[in-house]
Amino acid sequence: MSEGNAASPLLTVEHLTQRFGGLVAVSDVSFSARDREITAIIGPNGAGKTTLFNCLTGFYTPTVGRLTASHSGRTWLLERMEAHEIARQARVARTFQNVRLFGGMSVLENLIVAQHNKLMAASCFTLAGLFGLPSYRKAEAAAVERARYWLERVGLVDVADWQAGNLPYGAQRRLEIARAMCTEPRLLCLDEPAAGLNPRESADLSELLLFIRDHHAIGVLLIEHDMSVVMQISDHVVVLDYGRKISEGPSAQVRNDPAVIRAYLGEEEGA
């Protein structure tokens, strides 16, 4: 699917700073995420993880900093692109902390909408589609097949025609990941995918993420609170606290870093 290159990182974040008025949410953070690896960003509440995600995916424009995505022999400067361009051209897909599905639409429709740009081109910007030309019908059938593939992966085939809003919470989370994968991303950003899941569902999630990394050969960037998930599957961990990067490295190393322990247990500040 790709000729991923372990030497050059898929995503590079350099000196990222984001201010809101006087509040500094992210301060001078640099790290990189590699292709075919799972990179986790962890940190206590309010550490600036979601803000970082929003900068990456174009929902905020960073105050300072450079965000580069590079793959397929090209490079994109994410901080200069609009959110939809980042998703479409730089192929960065994301999920949201509080699941954002198209609740009134069916599960399958959610996955078809994710393939909008491809289908739009196939329908010649709706003209071919309006007259029901076979080229569009073929493209739509292919889109349904892709959707079916991901539905099988996340175990939602049986409920494909339900309203997405009626799914149980865990299924909604899985559907959101499937939807992001339907955009055929090179970097998948997941904002707390395990939040609110029971241990069994968390285990399934870990398995799914490993599958995505290994079989689809893409990079995964993960914000997570659930340490069992993080430690089990992450290749690389970045720790944020109060908007600053306090540690970085393989999970085993980060786990024993005194700075990380201090941030989580608050030994000296006594939270």
Partner: peptide
């Protein structure tokens, strides 16, 4: 007015 940040 105060600026409003789009919640994502």
């Amino acid at each position: 007015g105060r600026p409003e940040i789009e919640k994502v």
